[in-house]
């Protein structure tokens, strides 16, 4: 005698799975995901995939052109750099640095951003004011110049690069989380939890956070591309990972001096940056279209 007995509810299917299905339909985004995955596999399996030791110098192969050009050799497909190192192998190893730094910085920044954003949006009042001021101040600094200064002060090193890039990156997820929290905290199910006796911790973590994760994930992936470019910029300026460790930014920089006679030294790592960043951007836009209801029709 209830409306449940005649239920016409659709088969069990979570919101997440529906979103995932939308995402899979997006061809371009799927191609991008595959490209990103190839890069990731390259970083994990670098020793297996790379044809040569990236740091093996061979002065006889100095500035050897790519295989399809005159003087090329199919053993060194993309040619060699000024010290006779295999460019393809260095690109493969360089991907490790780019992706590692990209992921670590974003995870760190997103974690801090979520904490700060949730606190600001949920408690409001002075907490919001203090966090808001810090965010405003950080946003006032030019990103790269400040990172350069920081690196110059702290000296090079992987950990320092992460710090120099993450010190301000958290501001972005923080603002997203704060805005979403402000909206979600007014919804009735949050009020319902409070009426049932739930405390602030429960409400923030269990009621609000799961409902605002989609936009946060989307923003974080978009920003990851940005962080990769910044890392490359730092390395280009010689403030990133120190030689001989391969990094795309420093490879581009190394090739600068022979750009006219040996264009391939700079060009291929540059293309690698473009390809990875483009793939991440397209994939994240696909994510946004699928997961953020405001962009779906």
């Amino acid at each position: 005698m209830t409306d449940a007995t005649l239920s016409h509810t659709p088969p069990a299917d979570s919101l997440f799975r529906r979103n995932l299905r939308d995402f899979r339909r997006n061809r371009l985004a799927m191609v991008s995901v595959i490209v990103v995955l190839i890069f990731v596999i390259m970083t994990v399996a670098a020793p297996l995939v790379a044809p040569h030791d990236p740091n093996q110098t061979d002065l006889f192969r100095r500035l050897q052109p790519p295989a399809w050009m005159e003087g090329g050799d199919w053993a060194f497909v993309l040619g060699c750099d000024g010290l006779g190192r295999d460019i393809l192998s260095r690109i493969i190893y360089g991907a490790r640095i780019s992706i590692f730094i990209g992921v670590v910085v974003i995870v760190l920044a997103t974690g801090v951003g979520i904490l700060a954003g949730l606190a600001a949006g949920y408690f409001r009042g002075w907490v919001d004011v203090v966090i808001g001021r810090i965010v405003d101040i950080l946003l006032g600094f030019p990103y790269l110049i400040f990172a350069i200064g920081l690196m110059a002060m702290m000296g090079p090193g992987l950990f320092n690069i992460v710090l120099a890039l993450a010190y301000k990156e958290w501001v972005i997820p923080c603002r997203v989380v704060r805005g979403e929290t402000l909206a979600v905290r007014e919804l009735e199910y949050v009020e319902a939890a409070r009426a049932l006796g739930a405390g602030s911790g429960h409400i923030m973590w269990r009621e609000i956070l799961p409902n605002i994760m989609s936009p946060v994930i989307v923003v974080s992936t978009i920003r990851m591309a940005n962080v990769i470019i910044l890392e490359a910029s730092l390395s280009f300026l010689g403030l990133g990972v120190q030689p001989p460790t391969a990094s795309w930014g420093s490879m581009v920089s190394d090739g600068r001096s022979f750009i006219l006679e040996a264009w391939w030294v700079s060009t291929f790592p540059g293309l690698a940056i473009v390809l990875l960043v483009l793939a991440i951007n397209v994939a994240s836009q696909g994510l946004r279209d699928a997961f953020d209801p405001r962009f779906s029709e």
């Binding site: 209830t2 409306d3 007995t5 005649l6 016409h8």
Partner: peptide, 9 residues
């Protein structure tokens, strides 16, 4: 005396 059930799919 409500109508039982709900509108069919």
């Amino acid at each position: 005396t409500p109508i039982v059930g709900q509108v069919p799919n």
